[in-house]
Design a binder for these strands. Sequence first.
DNA 1: ATGAGTGCAAAGGCTTTGCATTAGG
DNA 2: CCTAATGCAAAGCCTTTGCACTCAT
Lengths: 148, 148
Amino acid sequence: MVSHAHSDIHGEVAERLRVAGQRYTTKRRTIIDLLAGVGQPMSIADLLERRSDLPQSSLYRNLVVLEESGVVSKVVTTGDQARYELAEHLTGHHHHLLCSSCGAVRDVVVPDALEHELDNALGKLAKREGFTLDRHRLDLIGRCSSCQ
Amino acid sequence: MVSHAHSDIHGEVAERLRVAGQRYTTKRRTIIDLLAGVGQPMSIADLLERRSDLPQSSLYRNLVVLEESGVVSKVVTTGDQARYELAEHLTGHHHHLLCSSCGAVRDVVVPDALEHELDNALGKLAKREGFTLDRHRLDLIGRCSSCQ
DNA sequence: ATGAGTGCAAAGGCTTTGCATTAGG
DNA sequence: CCTAATGCAAAGCCTTTGCACTCAT
């Protein structure tokens, strides 16, 4: 499974929020729509720019709630500001291309075979270290096609 | 090669700074010693705490210089504050265990075989995407042994 | 000597919070 | 209804910067 039909998204988000004891308000819907529409990790500045009806404080507070409810995840980049995207259960497991020149972030999917080997090797490694492995994060860092 | 003898470090740092047109001052030596001594990524607060003779502004400014000279690198974690460690040409290539509970970061080395497959697969992938791959970043995210 | 490096304190920028108002279930 | 969510403005926190002084070469 790589991604859900767009129509599924709101249902799944609503369910996750419900489980977390949170309401699915209009603003939260707006944020989810924005993230789903762009399909790439967005900075808070990006989000504010696209929807002037989202006050900063609401955006920040809602992103915290959405993240804690497992609906969006924070993407850590090479640069300064945080970025957010829909959680992987909504988009499918993927990784990121990080441009160290312009800061752009793009999603990328690696071959299943590699993914399996990673899971395998990292699982053993974590066990040996007494570490409870939740997930892995793999980023490709370099220069995007526009920044050659 | 996994790491250099401690005695090599200052020589190599001095050389890198020289090439970058930077001086190897007492404060910079202090920072390098701290990072080399701990052997784990340190937050700025950590560093300040250990050496009260390092004013914040000098620490911040020097970390910028050391990073630009390729001597230290910034480690991006799940959490709030940035962490710094010696660059990989001084420590050897490695990855990180990130505890999402307490924020601890620990270095870890993955099997060579996996590392090679990663390089291989990611190289192809980057090429296909028109992305100039500089390096990869692989983190294990979960709970450390103290946070079960 | 002389420009890079340093240190204090002040300014910046992003993020969080207090409190009164509004709206979701 | 009644509590969670919202919005404005103020406060916080980490990081950067201005400027005078000091040290490395």
